[in-house]
Design a protein around this nucleic acid. Structure first.
Lengths: 225, 225
DNA sequence: AAAATATTTTAGGCAGGGCTAAAAACAAGC
DNA sequence: GCTTGTTTTTAGCCCTGCCTAAAATATTTT
């Protein structure tokens, strides 16, 4: 049985704060696949440590020190993911679980050396931004879901909303990977699917679902990036 | 507080079996810096899992499956040490603790990829042999403690008996590292210290203690390896 | 062989995280 | 404003590994 650490909770709270604004017990139950009572327990632990502020029945908020730990853990996680993909040649759908373990190893010094060894990557294998050693991680990019692209657009895949194994493997089967440039050739309004053209000239139609989870950068309609 | 895992116990039992032949509760208490009751507890756990055979008051012995796990853990530990030194530029006295954590991450697949990435190293940064994926790890080398070398011998440092921080840092201060070739120029029988000559011509006298912990290969008295 | 010493095991607890079942608080509907 | 239903918390217990203190077994000394 894989036990969920304090850091895992902090990371989850951080993500939910961003996605939804407020963090309920329920939202943590879902994100972490655990039970309400376990969450309540842990929130007490985290509050006692000064990492969150918790008001019974009202939800939870990261304190500054909690956020610092969450970002530092996220940084380690994403750097190790880069290591696993770039150096050990794992594919992007295989790395999450190991990174989950690796993120609990090492201190700031080790993390910084790993960062340097990897060449200070800005994004992980799923296109998620890697926080800096100083805890900065404003994305800076202006990405939109591919579902928002219209006919004629040249779009480049820069990230995914869902980095679950199933979805990533689905993209693999479609020969879609980070950096790939596609052109929207047709848009079926009734079911919101779109037909896209690959650089090699082949084309295929992607479902609304698939498109919503692809984060793309819109390149100029004809020219270059 | 850093908790000692089952694998750590198996590794310790393996080492003590080799060093001393039989493994007492006491020997584990010392090697793992813990308490007798904790050891007894864990030995029950390990025996229940079928990894050791334990007879009360008589000692403990690894089973085949226990030995397999111990060797596999040792392999992971030593490969990660190579990673930390070769890739992240840590020094040989800094890596043990992190490797202790890293060895619990990943499966055989990850370990084999790490092994390949590192170029299938045969020895870790302290000169200890790295077991193969098949659990082989006969050393093959014929190393002797430097204390056994006599005047005129050319010796090359290939390993250390004690890989504790203090000893390794002591060697660092003496500009002694793995691979270094020294020549024995003088031997003081009364306190068993020896004077050695470095490749750059400088010389220094090492104590019996220091010499006993250096594992060297005796090169031909004049020629090459 | 008895006494004294050393080692190992049992007994009983602590802490971290997890769980179920039941109670309490909040939110909605009428 | 009361009833129903959902969410959150409390209560009580499990498991792993750790600990101390005390009892049991070995070993050594006399």
């Amino acid at each position: 049985m894989q036990t969920i650490s304090r850091e895992d909770y902090l990371k989850a709270i951080l993500k939910i704060e961003e996605e939804a604004g407020s963090v309920s017990n329920q939202s943590l139950v879902e994100k972490l696949s655990t039970r309400p009572a376990s969450v309540t327990n842990m929130l007490h632990t985290l509050a006692d440590a000064g990492w969150v502020e918790h008001e019974a029945y009202k939800g939870v908020r990261l304190t500054d020190s909690g956020k610092e730990i969450a970002l530092s853990t996220l940084r380690k996680h994403r750097l190790w993911e880069v290591f696993l993909v770039d150096k050990l040649n794992f594919s992007w759908d295989e790395v999450h679980q190991w990174a989950e373990d690796l993120e609990h190893v090492g201190d700031e010094e080790l993390t910084n050396r790993l960062d340097a060894f990897l060449g200070h990557p800005a994004f992980d294998p799923h296109g998620d931004p890697i926080p800096t050693a100083q805890g900065q991680w404003s994305d800076g990019r202006n990405l939109i879901p591919a579902s928002k692209a219209v006919v004629g657009d040249r779009i480049q895949l820069k990230g995914v909303v869902d980095s679950g194994e199933a979805y990533l493997q689905h993209l693999d089967r479609l020969k879609i990977e980070l950096g790939l440039i596609l052109v929207v050739s047709k848009s079926l309004d009734f079911d919101e699917s779109k037909t896209l053209i690959w650089p090699d000239g082949s084309e295929a139609s992607l479902s609304k679902q698939t498109l919503q989870n692809m984060l793309v950068e819109k390149l100029s309609r004809k020219g270059k990036e």
